[in-house]
Simulated assay, not measured.
Amino acid sequence: MRLRRTAALLLLLTAVGCGSAGSPGPAAAPPAASPSASPSAAAAAGASAGAAASDRPSDATSMICNPYFRQELAGALGTDIDRPLAPSWEKRVYSCEYHYPAGSMTLSVKELPDPATALAQYDGLRGSAGAVTDLNGLGEAAYKRADGTTVVRKDGFVLTVDVARLPETFGTPPRSRADVAVMTATTVMICWKEHSS
Rank of each mutant, 00 (worst) to 15 (best):
R126T: 04
E194I: 13
S20Q: 08
A44T: 11
A37R: 14
L85V: 04
S128M: 11
L159I: 04
Y68T: 13
A120Y: 03
E168N: 10
K144L: 13
A102N: 07
K193F: 02
L85E: 05
P26H: 07
K193N: 06
C96E: 08
I190D: 02
N66H: 10
A8H: 06
A37I: 07
G127E: 12
R5E: 15
G78H: 05
T160S: 12
P35D: 11
L11Q: 12
K144Y: 07
T150E: 06
L159D: 05
A42Y: 03
M105H: 14
P84I: 11
L73V: 05
A129K: 05
R175V: 04
G137H: 09
G25R: 11
P24T: 09
G19E: 11
H195G: 10
V16F: 02
T106D: 03
T169M: 06
D123P: 00
A7V: 09
L77Y: 12
S128F: 06
L77C: 07
A120V: 12
M1W: 08
A44W: 01
S54D: 15
L159N: 07
S128Y: 02
V182Q: 09
V188Q: 09
R56Y: 04
G25N: 07
V182C: 01
L12W: 02
A178G: 15
A15S: 15
Y68E: 14
S23C: 05
A146C: 01
L13S: 08
V152G: 03
I81Q: 05
S197L: 12
V161L: 04
C96R: 08
R5P: 00
A37Y: 04
T106L: 07
G103T: 02
P30T: 13
C18G: 15
R83H: 06
G130R: 03
D114K: 11
G22T: 11
A53K: 05
D123A: 14
E111L: 06
R165K: 15
F170D: 11
A164C: 01
A7W: 04
S88Y: 00
K110G: 00
L112K: 10
T79D: 02
V158K: 00
P167T: 10
D80E: 14
A181C: 10
D147S: 02
G19L: 06
L11G: 12
P87C: 08
D162I: 07
P30S: 09
V16M: 15
G124S: 15
A60E: 00
Y122N: 00
L125H: 01
R165D: 15
P30Y: 05
K91I: 00
G139P: 09
R92T: 10
E97C: 03
T79V: 15
I190L: 13
V132S: 02
S20G: 15
G171R: 09
Y143Q: 03
G127Q: 10
G17Y: 01
S196H: 02
S128N: 13
P113M: 03
L85A: 06
A181M: 01
S128R: 13
S176M: 06
R126Q: 14
S36I: 00
A178V: 02
W89R: 01
P67G: 07
G50F: 07
E194R: 10
Y94G: 01
R5N: 07
L9K: 00
L107A: 11
A33N: 09
D179I: 00
G130E: 10
G148V: 10
S176Y: 01
T169Y: 00
L85Y: 05
A118R: 08
P173I: 05
R56F: 03
V93L: 08
S104E: 13
T184D: 03
S20D: 14
T184K: 07
H195V: 05
A49L: 12
P35K: 10
